[in-house]
Design a protein around this nucleic acid. Structure first.
Length: 599
RNA sequence: GCCCUGGUAGUGUAGUGGCCUAUCAUGAAGCCCUGUCGAGGCUUCGACUCGGAUUCAAAUUCCGGCCAGGGCGCCA
């Protein structure tokens, strides 16, 4: 290897060494006689200097001519001597900033085209738009911020593997080409050449495989698993994503949670050298909905919801009466005076009223606490007793601003949760650099459509239900208002599994067709088991304080599932389609035929 | 499928009907400069997403398309 050091290595202790560096030309500064180049690689930046006065023993004209070819972002090699910088010109921001390399010989390894973006650490707002960054992702990834994200992610996964191996987990790779299943997300479909007309599906998660690994006595399994779902993207959702997938035999929910807490604490220690507080809090699902209007609330700030249905139920206020009569609820948020509740003016209140209407709420009732009582257009419907109870329930003091929402239970709680989040953002209540884990527990087994009565699995259909098939033994790991992963005890009794399928409205035939292989597996001594999968992209995104999952994925897709880098998805040659016996019915492809027939 | 926001030199921007032959920065090309570090100085180059409409006049207003982002639906 020609390279003796990376661009982040050299220190004053290396003074006088003959070194060879290879890297990219980040910035160069030619002073006419002496010229400086910031040579960069993944590890750092080292200043290399062309100094003709100091290198009279070499052919400086020839050397200068080579250095003239060192355009921005070209890869070059320099050989030279480590020396101190001129006194007073050291750069303390850079770990290599006390030294420089005096160039004695240099070589252009490969010229760079003129880069479409600037790669040096960006000043605020100078970063190009995301489409440019994606098209030239390999250049975007040269930025130290992206390098750091990739290194951090790598360290995260390495620590996870290290811990799980120490706990007797074995890593097993499950198939990516699997069977399309009826429920859940839309599948990405892969045509089979050998069996025309049949298709694999890219696995949405290794769920069934890992459960069958438990049947296979593997006892403890993990995998850094790529998962695929053909649904629309969001800033925290990509068509392909990575889960740290785990499954354990002979465990209950607490065993799984303990394991994850140990894992996360180990990773934390490795990443930050800090002891993470475990165990995490448990928050029952009904409480989460009631107090925060979300199944993954951010617990780092207050603004809790207060259910006020009981308090105001006797007030002769038509809107509330009607809603309560229909089984609806009234819930409220107290924006305390010291959270700037008294600084939200009438105009801003109107903006919040418009906001809640935009998110599908009927409206927003508001009142201000003033002179020991409440001030609002609906207070006239409230008896002194109701006002007192309301103040007590919401812990009201003068200067507080109260927002009330009313309507059907679930929608109103969720709407209030959305409003809570919006208020926290607007009032800047979300602390930075602070993280808060908790377990969401006590989830229902099914979501029941209030109109049709049709059941959907709340979590997924393999969760072990209680005897009444009402609650499931499942739990979500949540962090700062995000769901990091879902875990559960699984069904190991084939009859229970069939009953869950039945309750979901699946016929015996469909059950056999889609899940026969799995039911058969359960029937051969499936052990009690359970597991969890953590969304790595989201986890790393949150820890790095990034805005989008795309910033921790090397080559992400955009909003509409295309890769701006390689322009996938793309058409394939007709002979490939012929071989698969597939014909495109896309409108563009059909129009071609119509033109022919018109002639 | 739907809603919202945006699209000006390679990149980031200014620009609210005529003052636009379009601002500034950065970049690129060339020249000057021996201690800079996102070096500096001088010169030059380079752009209104596309189509239609309104108007004497459109980067600017309106309609539609395309592209990008945020959200709803969807994501068991």
């Amino acid at each position: 290897m020609l390279r003796t050091h990376t661009c982040g290595d050299l220190r004053p202790s290396d003074l006088g060494k003959e070194v060879c560096l290879q890297g990219w030309v980040r910035f160069s500064r030619d002073h006419g006689g002496v010229a400086f180049i910031d040579l960069a690689d993944r590890y750092g930046i080292t200043q290399v200097v062309f100094d003709p006065e100091a290198t009279k023993d070499v052919d400086v004209n020839a050397l200068g001519a080579v250095i003239d070819t060192f355009s921005r972002e070209s890869v070059v090699q320099v050989n030279g001597t480590v020396r101190n910088r001129v006194e007073g010109t050291e750069d303390e921001r850079n770990p290599t900033g006390a030294i420089e390399v005096l160039i004695r010989s240099a070589k252009l390894l490969n010229k760079s085209a003129i880069p479409p973006l600037e790669i040096g650490d960006q000043k605020e707002g100078v970063l190009p738009g995301e489409d440019v960054r994606m098209k030239y992702r390999y250049l975007d990834l040269r930025r130290s911020e992206m390098i750091h994200a990739m290194e951090f992610r790598s360290r995260f996964l390495h620590l996870a593997g290290q811990y799980l191996e120490s706990q007797k987990f074995i890593e097993i790779e499950t198939p990516i080409l699997g069977r399309s299943t009826p429920e859940g997300a839309r599948d990405f479909i892969v045509p089979s050449r050998i069996h025309p007309g049949t298709f694999y599906a890219l696995t949405q998660s290794p769920q069934l495989y890992k459960q069958m690994l438990m049947v296979a006595s593997m006892d403890r399994y993990y995998q850094v698993a790529r998962c695929f779902r053909d649904e629309d993207s969001r800033k925290d959702r990509q068509p392909e994503f990575t889960q740290l997938d785990m499954e354990m035999s002979f465990v209950d929910s607490k065993d799984i949670q303990d394991m994850i807490e140990g894992l996360v604490a180990f990773i934390w220690k490795g990443l930050y050298n800090e002891d993470l507080q475990i165990p995490f809090r448990r928050l029952p699902y009904p409480v989460a909905m009631e107090k925060y209007g979300s199944d993954k609330p951010d617990l780092r700030y207050g603004l809790e919801l207060h259910t006020l249905t009981e308090v105001v139920k006797d007030a002769p206020y038509n809107i509330f009466q009607k809603i309560i009569a229909n089984g609806g609820i009234i819930t409220g948020i107290n924006i305390k005076k010291d959270l700037a509740g008294d600084k939200i003016g009438r105009n801003e209140v109107d903006r919040y009223i418009a906001y809640v209407k935009k998110i599908g709420m009927g409206g927003l009732t508001w009142m201000r606490a003033k002179d020991g009582t409440l001030d609002s257009n609906i207070v006239k419907y409230f008896t002194p007793e109701i006002i007192e109870n309301l103040k007590k329930e919401m812990e009201v003091e003068d200067g507080d601003l109260l927002f009330l929402l009313a309507g059907p239970r679930k929608a109103t709680l969720e709407g209030a949760g959305t409003l809570r989040r919006k208020l926290a953002e607007d009032l800047d209540l979300i602390p930075k650099g602070v993280h808060d884990f908790f377990w969401l527990v006590d989830c229902p087994m099914f979501d029941v459509d209030p109109v049709t009565g049709k059941k959907d699995a709340f979590h997924h259909p393999f969760v072990l239900p209680d005897e009444k098939y009402e609650e499931g033994f499942c739990f979500d790991l949540c962090l700062d208002g995000n769901e990091l992963g879902s875990g559960s005890q699984r069904i190991h009794d084939v009859e229970v599994q069939k009953e869950v399928f039945r309750q979901l409205g699946m016929s015996e035939e469909k059950m056999e067709e889609d899940f026969g292989f799995f039911l058969r597996a359960l029937s051969y001594g499936a052990p009690p088991h359970g597991g969890i999968a953590l969304g790595i992209d989201r986890f790393v995104t949150i820890l790095l304080g990034k805005d989008t999952i795309r910033d921790v994925i090397a080559f992400p897709k955009n909003k509409v599932g295309t890769s701006l880098l390689d322009d996938s998805p793309a058409k394939v040659d007709d002979d490939k389609l012929d071989e698969l016996q597939i014909m495109s019915m896309a409108i563009d492809d059909i129009e071609f035929d119509e033109e022919e027939t018109e002639e």
